[in-house]
């Protein structure tokens, strides 16, 4: 069992140059999680990827409406549950209507959410009072 608690809370400008920073935080967390018996290198890549994709989405949504906005990302680990929340201030979208990529006729875009869904255990996108929250959970 993993009994320790970890909470990371980061706010970045809506600029893609910060993707490396956010992805790296995910990698470091994967490498430092206590009592994780799975493939640590794979988890590091997957967390890097999921945080990168989720933050990219939030930056894209925000820059369409308010270019000087910020994106807030929180990562919380407790009781073997890793929870990521990415807050954006854009118009939002309906997660349920995002289609799976067509692997027979691959397109240049539309794979980000597929990666998040593939590597994590649950994904929700909800509208709150003044923002949208993409919430991602993985059981370790």
């Amino acid at each position: 069992m993993c009994n320790s608690v970890l909470q990371v809370d980061v706010i970045i400008p809506t600029q893609t140059k910060y993707l490396d920073l956010i992805g790296s935080i995910g990698e470091h967390i994967a490498k430092d999680i206590d009592d994780f018996s799975g493939d640590r290198e794979a988890l590091a890549y997957h967390l890097n990827l999921v945080l990168t994709e989720a933050t990219t989405n939030a930056i894209k949504h925000a820059t369409l409406t308010t270019p000087k906005d910020t994106v807030r990302i929180t990562i919380h680990i407790q009781d073997n549950e890793l929870n990521i929340k990415v807050y954006d201030h854009g118009q939002g979208f309906d997660l349920e209507t995002v289609p799976l990529p067509n692997f027979e006729q691959p397109k240049e875009s539309g794979m980000g959410l597929y990666f998040i869904r593939t590597f994590m255990d649950s994904v929700t996108y909800t509208k709150q009072d003044d923002c949208n929250v993409l919430e991602i959970t993985k059981y370790l």
């Binding site: 890549y45 990219t56 691959p106 397109k107 240049e108 875009s109 990666f115």
Partner: peptide
């Protein structure tokens, strides 16, 4: 050592 969906998209393009 890292590529995301936009990187795959650029190469596919």
């Amino acid at each position: 050592r890292f590529i995301d969906s936009s990187g795959l998209g650029a190469l596919l393009s």
